[in-house]
Design a protein around this nucleic acid. Structure first.
Lengths: 363, 363
DNA sequence: TCCTCGCGCTGAACCGCATTAGTGCGCCTC
DNA sequence: GAGGCGCACTAATGCGGTTCAGCGCGAGGA
């Protein structure tokens, strides 16, 4: 009783289905399903036999069929909203993604990764993915101080975990502990403590005039770092004229430009903290142009380490964090939520300061 | 006649299906399917009405259901096999991916992107994705001189396009035009012409001793570049003692190390060509350490531009290519293949040399 | 006037899996 | 020895689309 049309001809190599397994093992399709999914209802004998046949046939569950009946897509999403222009030198995301996938691979979950131009497109993509049931949940990066995404995701009912800090409204300055719980489960790094470490280092070297070249003003962690800097400075008796922040778009161009303006100041700082590695290198380059010796006359710290910080001369002191670890944590947290676990706010490992040659005692 | 159990309660916001549309539009489900997929079989009137209802309901096809019946997953795959260690500063892949997605987004095709440790895992992933019918095709990057992937993919019947050069056996030296057609459709850049441009530039500036710090020896384009360098050098009457290549793993560490060895030579070169930006910057840094003025005593060229090349001092002369454009081209080519088009070998735009401050006349 | 044809649409099968409601049977119980 | 129970397994149903075989009907041709 051959199927009409000889099904196996023009379709390249028809993949085996549970039906094939059932036939070869001499049981029903449901028995196969039970056997392969570790459900009760079949004897150990049958289970073993079915497993063997499945192995022989090289069977893998068709993800579409499974998704259709099981209501799980078996995939998570990650959208990176960056204008193409600023899609620069970033080891951060590849490392983050690689960490995430370490966790997902073990459970055969795929990651849909998409780079888009702006936040609106990102939101539209969440809607579409969810409507199409392409993903079971998403990881949200680059949380902002005024972020539409948590509300959107909550409204959609799309499970999500924010990476990099509370994506809801920024916690109040006065009483951080009474801040409302963030809308989204979150994994974040303690920027305040990290900033304290940086200031400890610089203050210990005698620096009293410090400028912080921050990233995009709209991002939540930018706000946190700026706030922390103020707080930490105050703790050390430094005021706003001595320690301040300026914001940029993270690009080398704005990093260099900001550095020029800062160094043009009649009383320039003796140390600059850059919110990423690219700007730090750009800043070091500006210093070199002007003949300002680093670290003798100017100390430089990069927030985030990369090969970049090690190839320049002098090599840059940098705040090192375990980015893949961060990704693993986030993925794990999202899976927990999907499994019905409680939405939590968990904290990643505290970054440490890798002191290299770009920071030294203040003259 | 309500469904038993009140389906809409504990499942978060049941998504509308064509059944809902059919009911509201007063037609059958098949009519809805025809209307929404631009197939004949419904009047313009009905089509418009169905479309409107679908719009109102915010309907999007469930990708799993569509995949199950339509035999198309609606997704493509891209695997990046890199040991975590060398997952360094790379703007290349993000830009490539962003270009690819520009093309895919228009057709609502998703991209599964995965970072893995090695080639074996990559191959295993292709098998799994294909067995699970998660993807309709894949984009293969980092083709190697001795590459198992084209054969695997051909055996599986998994449609694929290689990015960055023939992924099959390297074309023969003698008669490149008679080389066997590559196993995979391919988009590639003409490294030979690009290398000619670089040599034109350096030779024109008077350089006669040139070293090429290449990347991973196993990669196809590394081999092509090395071969091209020899050819181009010979055309200009330079021999192997004057112009040569060394291979590295692309890392800043090996780039710096290679540079040190090269400069230790009793008759060091007057120009170095680096196969990526990171190594070029590392090399420049070594020169700075040793007090070798760039470009007065040593010219430096980076193969691939990035912010990096612009933030260092002096800024590096670099070979600029349109990476997102390359991605668009590759995505387009894969879609063509999926639509039944012929497998072709197409060539990306020729890179151009952006002359900056790191190259100058030979003393 | 009758037959044919094609249009616009419906009903049903199917994709591959999960799941639920049976079914047959051996065994224990009273 | 009849009833009940649990085990191993099968049959049927549904997920949300696509597709294909029909079907009624009005128009056009003979």
């Amino acid at each position: 009783m051959t199927a009409p049309g000889g099904a196996a001809r023009h379709r390249p190599a028809r993949r085996p289905t549970i039906k094939d397994i059932a036939r070869r093992a001499g049981v029903s399709e449901s028995a196969v399903s039970f056997a392969l999914n570790d459900r009760p209802g079949v004897s150990d004998d049958t289970r073993a036999r079915v497993r063997r046949v499945a192995e022989e046939l090289g069977w893998q569950a068709n993800s579409a069929a499974r998704a259709l009946s099981g209501e799980r897509a078996g995939a998570l999403g990650l959208v990176l909203a960056r204008p193409a222009r600023t899609l620069g030198v970033e080891s951060f995301f590849l490392q983050l993604v690689s960490g995430i996938q370490e966790v997902l691979a073990a459970r055969k979950i795929a990651l849909l990764f998409q780079v888009v131009e702006d936040l609106d497109t990102e939101c539209a993509l969440y809607r579409r993915w969810w409507a199409e049931r392409r993903v079971d949940g998403v990881l949200v990066v680059d949380p902002r101080t005024d972020d539409p995404r948590p509300e959107l995701l909550a409204a959609l009912g799309l499970p999500a975990v924010a990476i990099g800090g509370p994506a809801g409204p920024a916690p109040s300055d006065q009483e951080p502990d009474t801040a409302p719980p963030p809308l989204l489960p979150t994994v974040w790094a303690d920027d305040a403590k990290a900033m304290a470490r940086v200031l400890d280092h610089l203050h210990g070297l005698g620096h009293r005039r410090i400028v912080h070249v921050a990233g995009l003003p709209g991002l939540a962690h930018t706000a946190r770092r700026i706030r922390s800097l103020r707080t930490e400075a105050a703790l050390r008796g430094l005021d706003e004229r001595q320690v301040r922040s300026v914001t940029t778009d993270y690009s080398d161009a704005e990093g260099a430009e900001a550095t020029r303006r800062i160094l043009d100041d009649p009383r320039p700082p003796t140390a600059i903290i850059y919110d990423n590695d690219v700007m730090a290198v750009a800043g070091a380059s500006v210093a070199a142009e002007r003949g300002i010796p680093v670290p003798a006359a100017l100390s430089i710290v990069a927030w985030d380490d990369s090969a970049l910080c090690r190839v320049t001369h002098p090599r840059l002191t940098a705040l090192v964090r375990d980015t893949p670890g961060f990704g693993r944590l986030a993925a794990h947290e999202l899976l927990t939520v999907l499994d019905g676990g409680p939405p939590r706010t968990v904290q990643g490992e505290l970054p440490h300061l890798e002191a290299r040659e770009s920071t030294g005692p203040c003259e």
